[in-house]
Structure formats: structure tokens, C-alpha cells
Simulated scan of single mutants.
Amino acid sequence: MAKIEVYSGDFCPYCVKAKSLLKKKGLEFSEYNVKRDMKRQAEMQDRAPGSRTIPQIFINDRHVGGCDDLYALENRGELNQWLES
């Protein structure tokens, strides 16, 4: 099973959309709220240098990017490959 991590925040429509896709595919993921936990925000920025927006998504410790990047992987048919690697 793939290790999926989503750095998100409250009232973030892009976070909701990204998590919706993951749930639709029946995937489990860990969610870290960077608005409530500043340590998680720093962790996110260390893992994805230059990224200041949420969500930031990682699959098997590989940085996907944000919501649009996740949907782009799915639309290109590459998301399942990421989940298997």
C-alpha cells in the first residue's frame, strides 16, 4: 500500500478537492494541518522547498505537488504508477 501524505489546512477548497480524488480512488492517506501545527508547516517547506501553498502531496515520499498536479497525474494515467512505486 502506498504511503500518501497530504499537508493541508482549514477552509482550503483545493485541499478538499485533492482529498476527494484520493477518497474516490479508495486510498488512505495521512493528513497534516499546517495551519494548526507550525512544526508541520516547517516540515512541509523542508520537504517541498519553495512551496508555500496547500495542499502539498507526497506519495511514497515523492513530492507530487498540489491539487492541480495530483489531478494532472490522474488525467495522464500516471497516478496509479506512482502508487505502485
Rank of each mutant, 00 (worst) to 15 (best):
E31F: 03
L83G: 01
F58R: 07
Q41M: 13
V6M: 01
Q45H: 05
K24H: 14
E5P: 07
S30V: 14
F11M: 13
Y14I: 03
N60A: 10
S30A: 15
A2R: 06
A18Q: 01
I57L: 03
Q81Y: 10
K35C: 08
A18H: 00
Q56V: 13
A42M: 13
V6D: 00
G77N: 09
R62K: 15
K17V: 11
Q81C: 08
D10E: 14
P13G: 13
C15E: 02
Q41C: 09
Q56E: 08
Y14L: 01
Y32H: 10
A48V: 01
I54H: 00
S85V: 15
K3P: 03
K39C: 08
G50V: 02
P55V: 05
D37E: 10
L70A: 02
L27D: 04
E28L: 13
R40T: 10
K3M: 12
R47T: 09
G65W: 01
L21T: 01
S8T: 12
G65P: 11
S20V: 08
A42G: 09
E43L: 11
C12S: 14
A48P: 00
D46Y: 11
K25D: 03
S8R: 04
I54Y: 00
P55K: 04
A42N: 11
L83W: 00
Q56G: 03
K25C: 02
E31K: 05
A2E: 07
K17Q: 12
E5R: 09
S85I: 15
P13V: 12
R47G: 06
N80E: 14
E78G: 00
G50D: 02
L22N: 07
C15L: 06
I59T: 07
Q41L: 14
R76A: 13
V64R: 06
K19P: 11
K24R: 15
I4E: 06
A18N: 01
M1R: 13
E74R: 03
K35M: 13
F11H: 13
D10N: 15
I4W: 01
L70C: 02
R62T: 14
G50I: 02
L22P: 09
Y7S: 01
R52E: 07
Y7T: 05
L73R: 02
R76P: 02
P13F: 07
E43V: 04
K23P: 02
R36G: 07
V34H: 06
I4H: 03
A72L: 12
L83P: 00
K23R: 15
S20D: 09
T53P: 07
L83A: 00
C15I: 05
V64N: 07
M44G: 00
G50P: 04
E43T: 07
K3Y: 10
D61A: 09
S20R: 14
I57T: 04
Y14F: 11
E74N: 10
E78C: 04
C67E: 04
D68T: 12
L70N: 00
L73Y: 03
Y14K: 01
G66V: 03
C67G: 05
M1I: 12
L70H: 00
L70V: 00
V16C: 02
C67Y: 04
E43H: 10
S51F: 12
K35I: 09
I59Y: 03
I57H: 03
G77S: 06
N80T: 15
L21E: 02
D37W: 06
K17N: 11
K17F: 09
P49Y: 03
K17A: 12
V64M: 05
S30W: 08
V34I: 15
R52N: 07
S51R: 15
S51D: 08
N33Y: 01
E74Q: 10
